[in-house]
Design a protein around this nucleic acid. Structure first.
Length: 803
DNA sequence: CGTCACCGTAGAT
DNA sequence: TACGGTGACG
């Protein structure tokens, strides 16, 4: 990823900075890194399809750490696949499947640690997982945006617009995108980052230590970018044998990439791929003009405006097609899957951050006495440890943010004892008056599996939900294809894994909220805020309306700073001092949290585990507003559970019929082909690759998601191709390419299709059935545990009331 | 000398 | 998965 060797070549201008130096600033964060690292905490769960949100907690801890230092994180997620990126993903996908299979094998042999190693290698971050993090970000009013395509370009855009003042990532590409301040190597322990400033490039000389002989003196952005691309980047592999150093040297000698490539060809020692220069131009366009989401205008824009004289459909498609603005907005807010462009499926609806037990932790006595002794210096109020370990209340909830957002979340909500937990539960219970005549769940033999037994209920409520969220574009789509509502619904999974997920996360919290928090944290002072020195950072105000990649750019523009953004929007600097931060002014640029009634977040008729336990255990969850979930009568007894478990086991075969599964695989393959428009041969950098591999399921559509395999269980979840195609056609790049390639790919590639199916089958049937049973067993165990917990709690409560 | 392929490692708890 | 270090190659 990124530019090989670039970071090490820039060692001389790397400076380590403490987080406190960024206090008061808004910093864009590449979420990908955190999600990926977070996966390590729960690889086994993810690989085996066991719902977990540990990766969310991992990322949220980082977010909270930043906020603790007065930094406003602006979290940026990756979006859809950019045509420019070729499908090395395909071979990865295959490796992943192999690893998953191996892991399952090892797990079945009881070699769990070895299995985990395999699982680690087969996990990928899916948009659905990202959505779990988005839910948490919403709940804590953290700014975020899902990039239409690559997070890198989006990050660069945010900085260029002045929306953020620095970028936190691990990807050296950001420098090629022209970012001014990029922060690498975030160290949560040392609370430090390594900063690289564009302004310091000029001091990278061939003689400086660690520069590896490259010199950036006097180079324009265009030249720097050319060097990066020549040396090999994500959009274009280098001419074999050309690395960073030769690219740099030759560019110094020959000035333009055209001349460099001509020279390489002339020398004849290295083979220059056919059409390399054209691809070079396209790669350059990706760095310059890639499509991004403008949170102010709420639509897609070019990272830098294009010169229409130098623009064509190919370039247009290459840098990412446009999207209709309502769809773009939904994508940016996470309500739409950036890959499929269909409504986001909440793979773990039971996880609703913000609605935690003990919500009043931070509003009163318990917090006060629990955290007394902690340093409050630096912050006038809310200076407790919650700033770090819990949601940061400094920034008020955004207008559309639900009131329940301000709660304590996550496992580390502070130092607690079991007694306190009980105490608060009782208090909360008292506060909330539950009418005895509260509606109860439908009379099913098992409430726990009501969702399974009562599909009608789920269908109905979700259908309503869909309707309520449908905007013009969705509505239009549905009109064009009346079946789409059903299809979208069926893409939503309603099996017991959802319930399981709830159990898992809640169990985790039960434990961790009982365990005492470790002491020893001292709130650091955030007084020293070394703002950016504007004198050392020349901001070029380009008078040219366009930035192009013509030869003439070379040597013409030696100023070492990126071209100023075309002033569609005021390029505002952010206030450097915390005291100047005004949430209301900054919040305007936010992607607002979705309304609370987001049907995908809402409990849409699914049965949560909590529904099985009677309302008292969970009464706090929705307090303060209309309870979404009606209280239910008494929980299942263990016996009931076991009974249900047994019957469920019997059902598992029936739930996996052969036909619909094949149909679904077919649909998936088709959808993949449609989505993978950009990967088609004529755009691929290396046509020897992947002509036949294109139709594998793509990276982020793999079956390895927390509940990934659920799709295969539900015949109803087949996504009809025609619907898919219709939806996808709203991507411009797809629209314009449908004619030329769809036919050839879909018809001419039956080979690949077959391959794709086989790969899918390898991991399926038996293993999945086994997994299903395994997971179900865990469901039951968790449930039993919670049940026990509840009983003991009731006992304690009784004694409490008794006195 | 630079590039590339290979290796072991950290990353998480 | 991505990184740094190693050795082989041209």
């Amino acid at each position: 990823m990124g530019i090989q060797g670039l970071l090490s070549a820039l060692k001389s201008i790397q400076t380590t900075k403490h987080l406190s130096e960024f206090s008061g600033q808004t910093i864009a964060v590449d979420a990908y890194v955190w999600l990926h690292k977070g996966v390590f905490t729960c690889a086994t769960e993810l690989a085996t399809g066991k719902p977990t949100i540990r990766y969310v907690n991992y990322a949220m801890e980082k977010v909270r750490l930043l906020r603790h230092y007065g930094i406003k994180p602006y979290v940026v997620f990756d979006g859809g696949p950019l045509p420019a990126k070729k499908g090395t993903e395909v071979s990865r996908k295959r490796r992943r499947d192999e690893q998953l299979a191996r892991g399952n094998l090892l797990a079945s042999q009881g070699k769990h640690s070895q299995a985990r190693d395999c699982y680690l290698k087969c996990i990928d971050v899916t948009p659905q997982m990202a959505f779990q993090l988005i839910k948490a970000l919403r709940a804590e009013s953290v700014q975020y945006v899902v990039a239409p395509y690559e997070a890198d370009a989006q990050l660069a855009f945010l900085e260029r617009q002045g929306i953020v003042s620095a970028i936190l990532t691990e990807d050296s590409d950001l420098l090629v995108f022209g970012c001014k301040t990029v922060l690498f190597k975030f160290d949560p322990v040392a609370r430090s980052v390594v900063s690289i400033s564009r302004a310091d490039f000029a001091s990278v000389t061939a003689t400086s230590a660690d520069s590896n002989g490259i010199s950036l003196v006097g180079w324009s952005d265009t030249q720097f970018r050319a060097m990066a691309i020549l040396s090999g980047c994500d959009y274009l592999p280098s001419i074999p044998g050309i690395g960073l150093k030769t690219a740099c040297a030759m560019l110094r000698r020959w000035k333009t990439p055209q001349a460099v490539v001509r020279q390489i060809a002339l020398e004849g020692k290295k083979r220059v791929p056919k059409g390399y220069l054209d691809q070079f131009k396209l790669a350059e366009k990706c760095f310059l003009h890639q499509r991004v989401y403008d949170p102010l205008a709420e639509k897609l824009v070019y990272l830098t405006d294009v010169d229409l004289r130098n623009w064509d459909d190919l370039a247009e498609a290459y840098i990412g097609g446009d999207l209709e603005s309502t769809l773009a907005k939904k994508l940016a807010t996470g309500d739409v899957d950036p890959i499929t462009l269909e409504a986001m499926v909440d793979i773990n609806p039971g996880y609703s951050p913000g609605s935690r037990i003990l919500r009043d932790l931070d509003n009163g006595k318990s917090a006060a006495h629990t955290f007394k002794g902690k340093s409050n210096s630096g912050k006038k109020k809310n200076g407790t440890i919650l700033n770090f370990f819990g949601p940061n209340p400094i920034i008020p909830p955004q207008p559309r943010s639900p009131p329940k957002a301000i709660t304590s979340a996550g496992k580390a909500s502070g130092k607690r004892t079991l007694a306190e937990v009980m105490d608060q539960d009782v208090t909360a219970k008292k506060k909330r008056k539950t009418p005895a005549s509260a509606p109860t769940s439908p009379a099913t033999s098992s409430k726990f599996f009501a969702a399974l037994e009562g599909y009608g209920i789920r269908r109905k409520s979700f259908g309503t939900a869909i309707k309520s969220c449908a905007d013009e574009s969705c509505a239009r789509l549905e009109k064009e294809n009346p079946a789409s509502e059903d299809e979208v619904e069926s893409a939503h999974d309603g099996d017991s894994l959802v319930v399981h997920g709830y159990a898992e996360s809640e169990v985790e919290e039960c434990f961790s909220s009982i365990v005492e928090q470790e002491d020893g944290y001292i709130s650091p002072t955030s007084s020293m805020s070394r703002g950016e020195n504007d004198f050392s950072s020349p901001v070029q105000t380009s008078s040219r309306p366009f930035v192009d990649c013509d030869d003439s750019d070379f040597g013409v523009d030696p100023v070492s700073s990126p071209p100023a953004a075309v002033s569609l929007f005021r390029p505002q600097r952010l206030p450097q001092s915390p005291s100047l931060v005004r949430a209301d002014s900054l919040d305007k640029v936010l992607v607002h949290a979705s309304p609370d009634n987001n049907p995908l977040v809402m409990k849409s008729g699914f049965v949560d585990l909590k529904d099985c336990f009677g309302h008292e255990s969970w009464s706090e969850i929705d307090s303060g507003e209309e309870s979404v979930t009606p209280p239910y009568p008494s929980p299942l007894t263990p016996d009931e559970l076991i009974q249900t478990y047994a019957s469920r086991m019997d059902q598992s075969e029936e739930l996996e019929p052969k036909d619909p599964r094949e149909e679904e695989l077919r649909a998936n393959a088709l959808r993949t082909q449609v989505v993978a428009a950009g990967w088609r041969d004529r755009w691929a950098h290396d046509s020897s690759h992947t002509q036949n591999e294109q139709s594998f399921l793509k990276r982020r559509e793999t079956n390895i998601t927390p509940t990934g395999r659920h799709r295969l269980l539900h015949p109803a979840s087949v996504i009809a191709p025609r619907h898919t195609v219709k939806t996808l056609s709203s991507r411009k790049s797809l629209t314009l390419s449908e004619d030329n390639w769809a036919n050839s790919n879909l018809k001419g590639n039956s080979n690949a299709k077959t391959l794709g199916f086989d790969a899918e089958k390898v991991t399926s049937t038996e293993a999945r059935t086994r997994l299903e049973r395994f997971r179900f067993r865990v469901v039951v165990q968790c449930t039993l545990f919670l049940w026990t917990l509840r009983v003991s709690r009731l006992v304690m409560m009784n004694s409490y009331h008794g006195t």
